[in-house]
Design a binder for these strands. Structure first.
Lengths: 110, 110
DNA sequence: TAAAAGGTTCGAAATAATTCGAACGATGGA
DNA sequence: TCCATCGTTCGAATTATTTCGAACCTTTTA
C-alpha cells in the first residue's frame, strides 16, 4: 500500500523571492493562491478562469506554485490537498503575501 | 532643440499587479529596483551584476520595469534619470514594495 | 478485482521572453 | 560644427515557459 506521490517542496530557507514573485506573476496562478487564503482546498475545488483547460495544464500551474514554495501539495486519498504556505512565506518575506493577496482584484490587476 | 525621447509610462490606475510581480521576478531587475530605493539615479549609475552586458540588454531590462510601472525613466540631459514609482505603487498595492525591497537579500533570494 | 476518479509526468509543439549587434537620435563639449 | 557620450529601437537568434495529449499511478467504489 504505497501512497500517492510525495512531491518535492522547498524548505522554508530555500524559498527564493524572485521565484515566488514569478509564480504569482501569472493571473491564473495568482487566482489559485487567492482561492487558498481561507484554507486548504482539494485540487478539484480550485477553479481556473477557463474550466476547460486540461488537467495536465492545471497540474503544471500547481507545480510552479509548489516548486516556488507558495503552495503545499499533499496526498489526500486519491485527491490532492492544496494549501498556502502562509507561515513559511510570512516568516521569509514579511508582508509580501498580505500585500499581494489583499491587492484590489480589478481589471488592471489581472 | 527637441529632447530625448519621451518614453511611455502607464498611469497609476493602469499598473497591473501581475505585471509588476513579473518585472520584479528577475534578479537583475529586482537589483535595479533596490538601487533606486534611496533616490533617483542616472542609468549609468545603475549597475548590473555583470558589468559586461551590452547597453541594449540593459535598456531592455529598464523597459520591462518602466512598462510595468515600477520605474520612471526621464530624459536628463543626454542621460536618463531613473526613479522608483514609490507613491504610485504604494497607493495601488499598499505594502508590496516595502515587502519586496526589504526582504533579505541572501542567496536564496536571488 | 475491475473500473472510474483524481492527478502527475513526459515529450513535443507553440508562445513568450531574453540577448545582443547594428543603426539611429539627442545632448553637451571641444 | 563635429564628434563623443548615453541611450533607445529594431530584428534575428537563442532560450525559457506554456500548453496539451498520452501514458501511467494510486485510491475508492462497484
Amino acid at each position: 500500500m504505497s501512497s500517492s506521490p510525495d512531491l518535492p517542496h522547498p524548505e522554508r530557507s530555500e524559498i527564493s523571492l524572485t521565484t515566488v514573485l514569478f509564480a504569482l506573476s501569472d493571473p491564473e496562478r495568482l487566482a489559485i493562491a487567492r482561492q487558498l487564503v481561507d484554507g486548504p482546498l482539494d485540487m478539484a475545488e480550485c477553479h481556473l478562469s477557463n474550466p476547460d483547460v486540461p488537467k495536465s495544464t492545471k497540474s503544471h500551474l500547481m507545480k510552479v506554485l509548489r516548486t516556488a514554495g507558495v503552495v503545499r501539495n499533499e496526498a489526500n486519498g486519491r485527491a490532492r490537498r492544496l494549501s498556502l504556505r502562509r507561515e513559511d512565506l510570512d516568516a521569509r518575506f514579511p508582508g509580501l503575501l498580505d500585500a499581494v493577496l489583499s491587492a484590489e482584484k480589478d481589471s488592471a490587476n489581472s
